[in-house]
């Protein structure tokens, strides 16, 4: 097939790029989560990170409808919590619970979750779970970064406005945690600006 020279070199790639960008698969959020991060310290180091997710009302309603006993709007029973954990939480292990942890720049594996809990309040479902930290930091000054993000952007994670970042028992190590902006790559919409919670803390005395 004949195509003009310029067309082949310039216009076709440009057009294709345009069309592809217009037509890439949906990568806009369908689930909206407000999350909080609580960093738990013991006398020596950061010991665990407790994360909570509060879903948007529509998604909360679906979770309530499918995985809990009726009638809704009462407190969830232990059986409800178990059903939610098994059927609507554990599969996110494949996505390491949408949390990336870094200690002094090195990625920590996110494999295990403890203390899963779910509650329904003010029309919204909230999950809470703990990620135990296995590595112990021994530097004089340590940085732990906690990053809740879905790089497919199916879920939009946003740090909760109230009590988004909390520290427990961090006084001894002089811990301070705060959110900061960073750029994250997504699979479909390029890099976006997202929040990472960064904690700095000292080593245990002696």
């Amino acid at each position: 097939m004949w195509l003009p020279f310029r067309f082949r070199r310039v216009v076709r790639p440009a057009l294709l790029a345009l069309l592809l960008s217009a037509g890439s698969a949906s990568a806009h959020p369908h689930v909206f989560i407000d999350y909080t991060v609580t960093v738990l310290f013991d006398d020596n180091a950061a010991q665990a990170v407790r994360v909570s997710w509060t879903f948007d009302e529509m998604y909360s309603s679906m979770l309530l409808h499918d995985y809990t006993s009726r009638p809704p709007r009462d407190a969830l029973t232990p059986a409800d919590v178990k059903s939610l954990r098994k059927q609507a939480f554990e599969d996110t292990a494949d996505y390491h619970y949408f949390v990336d942890l870094k200690l002094n720049g090195a990625t920590l594996p996110v494999k295990e979750v403890t203390d899963f809990d779910a509650r329904f309040h003010d029309h919204r479902m909230t999950y809470a779970f703990t990620l135990p930290l296995r590595a112990s930091a021994s530097q004089a000054r340590n940085t732990l970064e906690i990053d809740a993000f879905d790089n497919e952007f199916y879920i939009d994670f946003e740090l909760a406005e109230k009590h988004g970042v909390m520290v427990e028992h961090g006084e001894k190590l002089g811990a301070s945690c705060a959110p900061r902006q960073q750029s994250r790559d997504t699979t479909m919409v390029g890099s976006v600006s997202s929040i990472v919670v960064a904690c700095t803390y000292g080593a245990a005395a002696g």
Partner: peptide, 30 residues
Amino acid sequence: RCDALTSGRNTPEASPTLVPFGGGLVMRLA
């Protein structure tokens, strides 16, 4: 199999990053 948070995802793993606009606009839209 019920995978509430992983079902209905709309992104082919294999596809390249296709950027119709900057990340700032994506976040504002979200």
